[in-house]
């Protein structure tokens, strides 16, 4: 009988101690692709890269589609821009490369879709930022598109 009690108590202890083990934090990065540049680390907390798809069409224009997910329980704002890069690594200046602010609803996905402005484009980079109040004060046309 004593042995049974001892056995039950030891099992109970094992369960109790098990609870003391720290919950393992998921360190797996949610956004891990060389084409996506996160410029505010706070975005890692709620933004998850679901899928990235791109290919060069027959007419030599690169087409890109990236799907993100807002894994938080809050609606979030996000600013993004696609930089189109030529074969020499230079960023093409184009009206197709503008900062755009969008709202991503909680637990909803969000898609960035883009087409290269030129047949010379070989690569792309998607920049993501948290919109801030001073965005409106940026004066050059390639940063002044936050309201769109």
């Amino acid at each position: 009988m004593k042995k049974t009690n001892l056995f039950l108590i030891s099992i109970l202890f094992i369960f109790l101690l098990n609870g003391c083990v720290e919950n393992q934090i998921d360190l797996k990065p949610r956004i891990n692709d060389s084409h996506v540049k996160i410029e505010n680390s706070s975005l890692y907390e709620w933004l998850k890269l679901e899928k990235i798809n791109y290919y060069k069409r027959k007419d030599e224009l690169l087409i890109v589609e990236v799907k993100f997910n807002n894994i938080s329980n809050f609606n979030k704002s996000l600013a993004y821009k696609i930089d189109w890069i030529d074969k020499n690594g230079f960023i093409e200046k184009s009206i197709l490369s503008r900062w755009i602010v969008t709202k991503v609803e909680q637990k909803r996905s969000f898609i960035i879709h883009g087409i290269a402005p030129s047949t010379k484009i070989k690569d792309f980079e998607i920049k993501l930022q948290m919109p801030s109040h001073d965005d409106n004060h940026r004066k050059d046309s390639y940063h002044h598109e936050y309201q769109n």
């Binding site: 704002s77 046309s141 309201q147």
Partner: peptide
């Protein structure tokens, strides 16, 4: 439809509208 931020602009067509 895709914007949360409210920015002060004119009611007329401005440069940013043309660019968009």
């Amino acid at each position: 439809s895709s914007s949360q931020q409210k920015t002060y602009v004119t009611m007329g067509i401005d440069r940013q509208d043309f660019e968009k």
